[in-house]
Amino acid sequence: MSITELRVFRESDIVTIKGWFEDAEVQRRLEGMQPLSEWYNYVASKEDYQVWTALDENKQPIGIVMVEQESNYVGYIALVINPILRGKGYGKALVKKVMSLPSTQSIKKWIANIETDNIACLKCFESVGYSFENSIPDEDGYYSLIYISN
């Protein structure tokens, strides 16, 4: 399986990711997105916030990726992979794919804020060239991993 399509996140996708939030790890990491309908209304109203759904060859959702662009060529990136697909390289593929989209080419500094104990996510972003901005986490327990594009 591979990511064959990235499409703009739709309100109907909430049903799919709602099921992902039944997974304890997703719930713990991304509880701030709930309730999902309010989160969707927020991101849909923001020009600088883009969300895509990654689909496989059977049009099944693999994950979602969120990018918030700032006016100073900085972009914040976060992702959620379908819990049953963890550890199969989809996160890495999704990060690479979204960073190569025409709509994200104005981003020169990518930032992923990741909890200190989220080892899989830290390794995912490191594997595509992100590096630790600081050797110690911030006061909320997050590392900032950055990627500077040409």
Rank of each mutant, 00 (worst) to 15 (best):
E133K: 15
I111Q: 08
V51T: 13
D13P: 04
G75C: 08
S149T: 15
K97V: 03
P35H: 01
Y73G: 00
Y90T: 10
G129V: 01
F132W: 09
T16P: 10
S100T: 06
M1L: 09
I136G: 04
D48M: 08
E11T: 02
S135I: 13
V26L: 02
A44K: 12
I119G: 04
Q69T: 05
L30D: 04
T16G: 07
E22D: 15
R86V: 01
A120C: 04
I14Q: 03
S2Y: 05
F9D: 10
W20F: 08
K92E: 13
K92G: 00
L79C: 05
I119P: 04
R7N: 11
K88L: 15
L30A: 04
W20C: 11
S37L: 05
G129T: 02
G32M: 10
I148A: 09
E38I: 06
P83N: 10
V26M: 09
F132H: 13
I107P: 07
Y130W: 10
N82A: 14
Q105W: 08
E38L: 12
N113P: 00
K108I: 07
S127K: 01
Y143N: 11
K123E: 14
Y143S: 09
Y73W: 09
S2D: 14
I136A: 14
L101Q: 12
E139D: 14
S71R: 09
S135V: 11
K96A: 10
P102W: 03
R28T: 11
G63S: 08
I148M: 12
G89T: 00
V15C: 07
K92N: 02
R7M: 07
L101F: 08
F21Y: 15
L101I: 02
F125I: 00
S37N: 12
Q60S: 13
Q34R: 13
F21N: 03
R10H: 13
T4Q: 11
K88C: 09
A78E: 14
M99F: 01
N58V: 06
E70Q: 14
S149M: 10
Y143Q: 09
K109L: 15
P102H: 03
K92L: 00
D23G: 06
D23E: 05
L145Y: 09
V15Y: 11
